[in-house]
Amino acid sequence: MEIDESATGAPNPFAPAFQMGLIGRGIQLSRTPAMHMAEAQMQGLTCRYDLIDTDVDGDIPLAARLDRAENDGFAGLNITYPYKQEVMALLDEVSASSQRVGAVNTVVFRDGRRFGHNTDHWGFCESFRRGLPDAKRGNVLLIGAGGAGGAVAHALSDLGAGCVLIADARPDAAVALAKAIRAAGGQARTVSDPTLAAAGADGIVNATPVGMAKLPGVPLDTACLAAHQWVADIVYFPLETALLKAARAVGCQVLSGEGMAIFQAVRAFELFTGRPADPDRMRATFRSHGQSSTAV
């Protein structure tokens, strides 16, 4: 159905109503609900978006949470830390990109089946293309090989990284991700010390939760940073993490987690509703929440 660009945002009584949600840990200040609900309203749709925070009611298994959402008529769920890999075993079908990345962050319920997608991959690619279009991509250091790290690693490879250097506190996770990148035709290897590896990198990406307001700190010794490098972070509360602040101070180009958060939501909205979302409107909603909140 073609969207009427002149819509005033008033709900259309004949349009379908959508219910979505986000499952994750510590997500009470997420901006994701606002982005989806505001976009739905602008398109004349009715949308409810719930937060399912396992820090609040953590005793319920993930499988039971999916069952409940599906039985309650949800169109789908966004999935965030730490469930992007665990959820894959609970789905009927998983997209090719999700299989390659090894993680799902968007689940769509349709016709009695569950479909898994990964919009983080496209979200990071789109953010990088717009935010660091001319950045050198020879060796790129990636810190974090979890669900988000997998999406970012494959995105970096698709963006033309000569070699993705992967560091993770769990060596087996880093090895598995590097192997997956090579199997997909890219180049990747593991590194044990991100601070030492940073010296030979054109760019550095933090794909761990370190730097969030609830988990302050930096994922490497920032004394290793040099002005010729670029530094990206997927954390976006705060938008300028300690890592990005240190990188900016020495003259690095920086990329915050804002773009990835917005563009993954743009793609998820279309998967949930069948209608394309407006990135500029979603960005405006994201920014309207200021630094007083976070999103996933």
Results as ranks from 00 to 15, higher is better:
S98L: 00
D278P: 03
T241I: 09
V231P: 12
M88Y: 06
K136Q: 14
K179Q: 10
N105L: 01
F269T: 00
L62I: 04
D158T: 09
E258D: 14
M282D: 09
L91A: 06
D50L: 12
L156D: 07
P82V: 12
R182W: 00
Q187P: 00
I23Y: 11
R48F: 03
G211L: 05
W122S: 02
F286Y: 15
V210H: 10
R170Q: 07
A174Q: 05
V235I: 15
A174E: 06
A153L: 15
A155Y: 11
L29C: 01
S293V: 05
V205L: 08
T46F: 03
D168Y: 06
I234R: 10
S192D: 13
G21A: 07
D92G: 01
R287E: 15
Q41P: 02
E70C: 08
L51D: 08
A201L: 00
D233R: 11
R248L: 05
M260W: 04
F109M: 02
T54Q: 12
L239E: 14
G131H: 07
Q85N: 02
Q229N: 15
G116V: 03
M37C: 11
E39N: 06
A17H: 13
L77M: 08
P61I: 10
D111I: 00
V296I: 12
E39C: 04
V94S: 06
A247L: 12
E70Y: 04
G9M: 10
P171M: 03
M212C: 06
S6D: 14
D158H: 10
L90Q: 14
V235H: 11
V210T: 13
F272A: 03
Q85W: 02
K84T: 07
V231K: 13
A178S: 10
S98N: 01
P216D: 04
I143W: 08
C163K: 02
L220F: 11
I3V: 15
M35I: 05
A161W: 04
T54P: 07
S127T: 02
P82C: 12
V94Y: 04
L196F: 00
V87W: 04
L45M: 14
S127R: 01
T119C: 02
Q85E: 15
R48K: 04
G9H: 05
E5R: 09
A247D: 12
D53Q: 04
R110P: 00
H117D: 08
E86C: 00
V56M: 10
P82S: 12
R275Y: 04
E93F: 09
A246N: 09
A173D: 11
D72A: 13
L165P: 03
T32Q: 10
G290D: 14
A34R: 12
A135P: 08
H228K: 14
F286D: 05
L22V: 08
L215D: 14
G147K: 09
V210S: 06
D193L: 08
A148Y: 09
D50V: 03
A207D: 03
T222P: 11
W122I: 00
L196G: 00
M212F: 06
V175I: 05
G21M: 04
A7P: 00
D221A: 13
G44N: 11
C125Q: 14
A261M: 14
A265F: 05
L159T: 10
